[in-house]
């Protein structure tokens, strides 16, 4: 039995088909990442898995319990870390954990012990009496995670738990995830940071526009772009017409531009790079930096969609 089994899940919001028949599975004890840009449908998928949204079609099972027919059993084996902090800001870290523990059915001495353990895991034992509202973003995120661990779930789902926090807290959270996994928890981790997916995952499902467009181990996914190179370039001008010119250069397999950085996917950089210089020169633009990258998940995404993954 897989820890998570997702079959053909669909969800629409009015006209918008946010999730269009997604299927994947997470084996017991692994970390599976859902990697995709903002709006890909990751949170919507997770909302269905955690019982927040009813799917329009399809089903999923957590530890063998269908979210449609046995929602309470599915929820009991699942810990959910929502994308946005969902805590009571006016209550202390401890009071928050105690309350959420009760909602998972813990009581009395068992609850107290487990809250202490979780405070240790998230490294906030010495701040347990302080109101969560006064915490830094990173500390709030840690409590947000802690609240999902109280009932020692077999499966934990984390929705972009590192968005908008300092590097130190991010490190702490990534280490937490690995440690929880080492202790046997299955983790479904969503992110739009390819470095996180690469570091953590046993398997990665790449999502875009409501669909899983690729699935595999990190190495399997990289093989999809075998032989291709990714080049990041910057120009001395705003380059809409340069971009148009480069799109039709022979050997360019994908191109995208974000925040002034143009990412180009090419089969052979030795051949294509001079052509890019030439095309830019014709339009009076100058290339101010060139960065040739080893193929990574970013390259894979560019290869599959023609767009860059980063925000």
């Amino acid at each position: 039995m897989n820890a998570i089994e997702v079959r053909h899940l669909k969800k629409s919001f009015g006209e918008l088909q946010a999730v269009q028949g997604v299927a994947f599975a997470a084996e017991k004890g692994e970390i599976l990442s859902l990697l995709g840009p903002n709006g890909a449908g990751k949170s919507t998928t997770i909302s269905m898995l955690s019982g927040l949204l009813a799917p329009n079609d399809g089903d999923a099972a957590i530890m063998g319990h269908s979210i449609r027919t046995e929602p309470e059993a599915a929820k009991a084996s699942l810990g959910v870390v929502p994308q946005d902090i969902a805590l009571y800001p006016d209550l202390s870290a401890r009071e928050n954990l105690v309350f959420w523990g009760k909602m998972y059915g813990l009581r009395g001495a068992a609850l107290k012990t487990r809250v202490d353990e979780v405070l240790d895991i998230i490294g906030l034992r010495d701040r347990q009496k302080d109101a969560v509202g006064k915490f830094s973003g990173g500390m709030k995120r840690r409590v947000n995670i802690g609240a999902a661990l109280l009932h020692k779930p077999q499966v934990v789902i984390m929705d972009e738990p590192t968005v908008g926090i300092d590097p130190q807290s991010r490190r702490h959270i990534l280490d937490n995830v690995k440690e929880l996994n080492r202790q046997g928890m299955t983790v479904l981790y969503t992110t739009h940071y390819m470095e996180e997916a690469a570091e953590l995952s046993d398997h990665i499902a790449i999502m875009d526009s409501g669909k899983v467009i690729a699935y595999g181990t990190h190495d399997e996914l990289i093989k999809l772009v075998n032989g291709q190179t990714r080049i990041d370039l910057t120009l001395n001008v705003e380059g809409a017409d340069v971009l148009d010119a480069w799109k039709v250069v022979e050997g360019v397999n994908g191109i995208d531009s974000t925040d002034g950085v143009v990412t180009v996917l090419v089969s052979d950089s030795n051949l294509v790079l001079p052509r890019l210089f030439e095309a830019a020169g014709k339009l009076g633009a100058r290339i101010t930096s060139v960065d040739i990258q080893e193929p990574n998940l970013e390259t894979v995404f560019l290869h599959l969609t023609g767009r860059a993954l980063r925000d």
């Binding site: 955690s50 019982g51 927040l52 309470e72 059993a73 929820k75 009991a76 699942l78 959910v80 929502p82 946005d84 902090i85 969902a86 805590l87 009571y88 800001p89 959420w100 909602m103 998972y104 059915g105 609240a147």
Partner: peptide, 14 residues
């Protein structure tokens, strides 16, 4: 609005 209601809905509580 704070998201705690959604979180309550993810716990095994009817």
């Amino acid at each position: 609005e704070e998201g705690t209601l959604a979180r309550l809905f993810t716990t095994p509580t009817e």
